[in-house]
Design a protein around this nucleic acid. Sequence first.
DNA 1: CCAATAGATGATACACTATAACATGACAAC
DNA 2: GTTGTCATGTTATAGTGTATCATCTATTGG
Lengths: 174, 174
Amino acid sequence: MIHYNMTTPSPDDPGAPLGFAKHDHHACVTDALSVAEARCAEEGLRLTPVRRKVLEILLREHRALGAYAILDLLREEGFGSQPPVAYRALDFLSENGFVHRIERLNAFVACTHADEAHSPAFMICRLCDTVAEAQSAPARGALGAAAKAAGFQIEKTVVEAEGLCPACVDKAAS
Amino acid sequence: MIHYNMTTPSPDDPGAPLGFAKHDHHACVTDALSVAEARCAEEGLRLTPVRRKVLEILLREHRALGAYAILDLLREEGFGSQPPVAYRALDFLSENGFVHRIERLNAFVACTHADEAHSPAFMICRLCDTVAEAQSAPARGALGAAAKAAGFQIEKTVVEAEGLCPACVDKAAS
DNA sequence: CCAATAGATGATACACTATAACATGACAAC
DNA sequence: GTTGTCATGTTATAGTGTATCATCTATTGG
Ligand SMILES: [Zn+2]
Ligand SMILES: [Zn+2]
Ligand SMILES: [Zn+2]
Ligand SMILES: [Zn+2]
């Protein structure tokens, strides 16, 4: 039950959060799209119109959206509006590292480190659903030791922290 | 799409895995139930028949089960069989630390450290769905640093590693 | 150019997961 | 005994995700 409002922030709204910091969101979106296009060209991946549009939506919104919320936005832009349309695009994008799935929210967020290979960790605000991406190396710590001891071969890790973002901490304090 | 087989292992089957290790599973179940009963008595929590049965089911099966799989087993034992019955029991048990939710599987597993307060991490085999619980301290590493830098207050963390359990590594090698 | 192929999309139907809402029951406090 | 509280039963519905099959579109090889 993610309670997104459906309105898209004006693309050059300087107050939109990347992670939790203010930034030039318009450049942020166009840059990330360029990077994605370049990488697809290099690697022979097909960034088709639907896939590109889904990535653009997630970049614009800059927070986790459920597949059905994405589907609503796709419909508004004239694309197919059945669930597989969104899920297939999201599969492509997440298999190739352009978006990440947030297990805790059953939702998706655009990657903010589109280039390098990485093992992401997320900070999820339980009040405003904002999501920030950080790096993690869980296999190096206690978990890695436990896995080694148990003979378990780690292939992928999910790390998601839930709590309060800076803005909501302030609100709660007042 | 968790593909559990519905059969319950004979309660004293010495081959049932705890984590990934063989152990005396019958004692494992009865001990954990005793611990749960003791703690509920201490803290004034009500371990009612349904709640106790759900915990028993998860202890017996010793792996992650979806709410509807639990519901099927509850029905067989004469309890109510509508979704809220299972979800309410699971809410009680997970709020009080007797079971954990595995976000990645939309499923639940009995805690194997029922006593102490802890921040669990899980190792999930992608072939046989076995789940082992380990400890983690993600807030101490890179994630904690990132949270501090961002002003994010971590309240809870989800750490789930996906990969191959020892048994499935062996099978894959052959 | 045409046919064959492979990948992508469209569309229907369905399966799985979870909660809202309301009625009933059990039990303790007053 | 009435009231309040917590737990359970039950119905209905919301939200999330796939299987399947048909169609389209872009290569590519002849
Ligand atoms: Zn990323
Ligand atoms: Zn917030
Ligand atoms: Zn535990
Ligand atoms: Zn396994």
